[in-house]
């Protein structure tokens, strides 16, 4: 039997609209990812990153291609991944505790049992004293932490994180990046991470995928050399600076390709 990739995205294409107005969101997109790896996806706005995530999450069907996890197709099968978006999407009428166990209770787990299971993650994310609060009583960083714990509680080995820290201030973002690295390494999660921040991608990832737009496609795939966990100091290593330069240049070219005045 051939050596099978953990996550395989093969020949994925998706168009929106029809006839002359049809827009190719992604075209013939393929990559693989091994178990326990952290892959960041960078690309200009509108390059199809979120479409890719929606297809992997089983929320949207592609026009062609397939996505498999351990050889099993994920197409239109929601619930196979832990999906976290830029907005925390906490249910405002539920307490933090009831928000973080939402996935468990949807699958019939008793509340008390689900809470017991969630407590270590809540503690690791510094939420143990806030479990009885409502989301509007939390800061932006605390809300994102609660959303992260909720995503972890899905128990899914593959996490899709769509710009989860995009709306946070620099300090809070740094804390959450450290927390995410720590949690993912301890729990051996495989992560797909969308970001617009090159430093964030270099800090967190094992691999970085650069996407171009119109149509959305892969223009580079980097395997980062440095072992994790990384620190801000690690980012100053010559090889990472070199990669950062290349990524910035690729992104710049991609933006200028569509808008020469940018």
């Amino acid at each position: 039997m051939p050596n099978q990739a953990y996550l395989r995205v093969a020949g994925l294409s998706k168009r929106f609209g029809s006839g002359e107005n049809a827009v190719a969101a992604i075209e013939n997109l393929s990559f693989t990812l091994d178990e326990g790896r952290f892959l960041s996806i960078l690309g200009p706005s509108g390059c199809g990153k979120s479409t890719l995530f929606n297809i992997i999450a089983g929320l949207m069907a592609p026009d062609s291609g397939d996505v498999t996890l351990n050889g099993e197709s994920m197409l239109l099968r929601p619930g196979m991944t832990g999906y976290m978006l830029q907005k925390d999407l906490l249910l405002p009428w539920r307490t933090v505790a009831d928000n973080i166990i939402l996935s468990q209770t949807l699958h019939g787990v008793r509340r008390s049992k689900a809470l017991d299971a969630a407590l270590p993650d809540a503690r690791a994310c510094g939420l143990e004293t806030m479990l009885r609060r409502r989301p509007d009583e939390l800061s932006g960083g605390q809300r994102q932490r609660a959303a992260l714990v909720r995503t972890l509680q899905t128990g899914k080995p593959l996490l899709l994180l769509d710009e989860p820290f995009g709306a946070l201030d620099a300090i809070t973002r740094l804390h959450l990046q450290e927390l995410l690295t720590d949690v993912c390494m301890k729990k051996d999660k495989t992560v797909l991470f969308i970001t617009h921040d090159v430093d964030e991608a270099l800090l967190l990832s094992d691999e970085v995928l650069i996407m171009g737009s119109q149509p959305g496609r892969i223009i580079a795939h980097y395997h980062l050399p440095q072992e994790k966990p990384r620190t801000l100091k690690t980012l100053a290593l010559p090889r990472l600076i070199e990669i950062k330069g290349e990524i910035m240049q690729l992104l710049d070219q991609e933006v200028k390709r569509h808008d020469p005045h940018a």
């Binding site: 089983g58 929320l59 999407l89 949807l106």
Partner: peptide, 23 residues
């Protein structure tokens, strides 16, 4: 976006109604 989240968590239609739409 909340509906999308519920679907991504594997919620059935009935569960989306009772746990999201009604509240």
């Amino acid at each position: 976006a909340l509906s999308t989240l519920m679907i991504s968590l594997g919620a059935k239609r009935r569960q989306i109604f009772t746990r999201l739409v009604v509240p």
